[in-house]
Simulated scan of single mutants.
Amino acid sequence: MAYMYMPGATAVGITYDGGVVMASERRIAYGNFVVSKTTKKTFKITDFVGACCAGMVADMQVLAMQMKAMTKIRKMELKREIPPNSVAKMMSTMMYERRYYPLMTQVIVGGVDGDAVIYTLDPLGSVLPDDYASVGTGAEMALGVLDQEFKPKMSEKDAVNLAVKSIKSAIMRDNASGDGIDVLVVDKNGTREFTAN
């Protein structure tokens, strides 16, 4: 019965015309027990790359902290911004190196390097590029909305509204998701974070 203590969550990433929107709800639940209602699962990695997660938030917090440090060092070496695909590959390598004691988190990495791109990473470090993605126990419900309503080259406002709508649909049916929505927007001007209801 250990499976019932795997934490649930819902996170989504969507590309739009000029940027990326990442959103996640704030609840941490183990089985039927709600541990927290205020946990942030969106992370700014660099000025132009962000991430969101589902699963063990502690693992993602450590991964995000290490990635922030590694990207700062890499930026000083290269004297330019680190593109999102490089961040995803670095994160993938770190996760694969720990494959025997994996970081129990699913991650969506997204950002802007000319084009807006997102990548989904599983606990073993597989990197899957896509235009939109969802991870976590509420992913099926969120993808039901995203599959129907995603359009290439959407406006930022439409992408934010779609991200929030998809998370809300997951909250309606997934008891491990809920308690507000954090949104992270990344575009050519940098990152912005806010909370949606």
Score class of each variant (00 low, 15 high):
K157V: 15
I167Y: 09
L162H: 15
T93F: 12
S169N: 10
P152C: 04
A139L: 11
R74H: 14
D147G: 03
K41A: 13
G114V: 02
Q148W: 09
P102Y: 04
L146P: 04
S86A: 15
Y96C: 05
P83T: 08
M56Q: 04
A116S: 14
P152Y: 03
A163G: 15
E77V: 12
T137F: 04
V164W: 10
A64F: 00
V57L: 08
N161P: 03
G136W: 07
A51N: 04
E149R: 14
P84H: 03
S134R: 04
S126A: 14
M104C: 15
T105P: 01
E97N: 13
Y100Q: 05
M70E: 14
V107R: 12
N85P: 00
Y101V: 12
L103H: 08
V49L: 02
R99E: 09
Y101I: 12
L63N: 03
V49F: 00
M70W: 08
M60Y: 09
P83G: 10
V87P: 00
G50H: 05
E156K: 15
L103K: 07
I73E: 08
A64W: 00
M76P: 02
D158C: 09
K89N: 06
P123V: 09
A51P: 05
K153N: 14
E156N: 14
T42M: 02
S86G: 12
A142R: 05
V164K: 08
E156W: 12
R98A: 14
G144M: 13
G114M: 02
T93N: 10
R99A: 07
M90Y: 06
P129N: 04
A54N: 04
S126F: 11
T39K: 10
G55E: 06
A64Q: 02
K153A: 13
I45R: 08
S134A: 15
R99V: 08
A116C: 08
K72Y: 11
K89L: 06
L143W: 01
V112K: 01
V135T: 10
I73L: 13
N85I: 11
V117E: 15
A163V: 13
Q61M: 04
V87K: 00
S86F: 07
A69S: 09
D147W: 03
V107T: 15
I82P: 07
M56G: 00
M67Q: 10
M141G: 13
K165A: 15
A54F: 03
P129W: 00
A163I: 13
A88M: 11
A64P: 02
T39Q: 11
R99Y: 14
L124Q: 03
S86N: 10
G136V: 06
